[in-house]
Amino acid sequence: MIENRPVLNIASHAVLIIGIVIVALPIWITFVAATHDPVRMTQAPIPMLPGGHFWENFTQTLFGGGLSGTESAPVWRMLLNSLMMALMISFGKIAISLLSAFAIVYFKFPFRMGFFWLIFITLMLPVEVRILPTFEVVADLGMLNSYWGLSIPLIASATATFMFRQVFLTIPDEMLESARIDGAGPLRFFWDILIPLSRTNIAALFVILFIYGWNQYLWPLLITTETDMTTIVMSIKQMLEAAEQSPQWNIIMMTALLAMIPPVFVVVAMQRLFVQGLTETDK
């Protein structure tokens, strides 16, 4: 840094470490709770150091029926549902956005701007504000309790379309001219040139969308009524309700941990892409 002030440097590290501790504290407590037996978790104050029941809780949560005394799908099934939903949303969004951005940037056709504005409007209508009528549409289409119902209504997105439009606009015109001289038609150009040239953007967007999809809550809560279709994120709420009668905090917290690990892993493992995706989609 500019001046050499050891005290200030130490203070900087200290502040950051305190910050990390505060940020990480809820996770630590969750982890600790997931390593104790249920009896210990009913005695105040709850422990602050890990116990020895991690694997026991882990297997019971993952393969057992969730909380004892309630009727729910096993957690592995919920994880699978969440994974399906997250993947369908991310791939679906990326696919339809790539296609529509390609059409809008590389073709001149009647109503082009009309379509552009139609897509733009979706930016202004988050699912939370039109929840009831959207639910009715999905119900009328018979898509309740299905992966399609979980994912398709969430895959139209103006943000992703805008991002790809931006990416395509920075690709030099000569790429297209060169490809045309080489004899590539529109679809060939799209597949051989555009997709490979945007692949880091696609990967960055995937990271963001995977988290978005995985963390959906209100939507799956409304359109899944069968326990088989429950996602892991929404199951937490049901467990919290059950906890008021029979508190099994070790299992609840283990479930929370399992629900968190996939998206957190994606963020940490693909940090560079994640940062790129975040800054690109929001600007």
């Binding site: 296609l99 379509f115 959207t134 009715e136 895959i155």
Partner: peptide, 16 residues
């Protein structure tokens, strides 16, 4: 190419 996005937008955004 725009059809999938436009159809989904119409059914799940504009109509609701």
């Amino acid at each position: 190419l725009v059809a999938p996005q436009v159809i989904i937008t119409l059914i799940f955004f504009i109509w609701p």
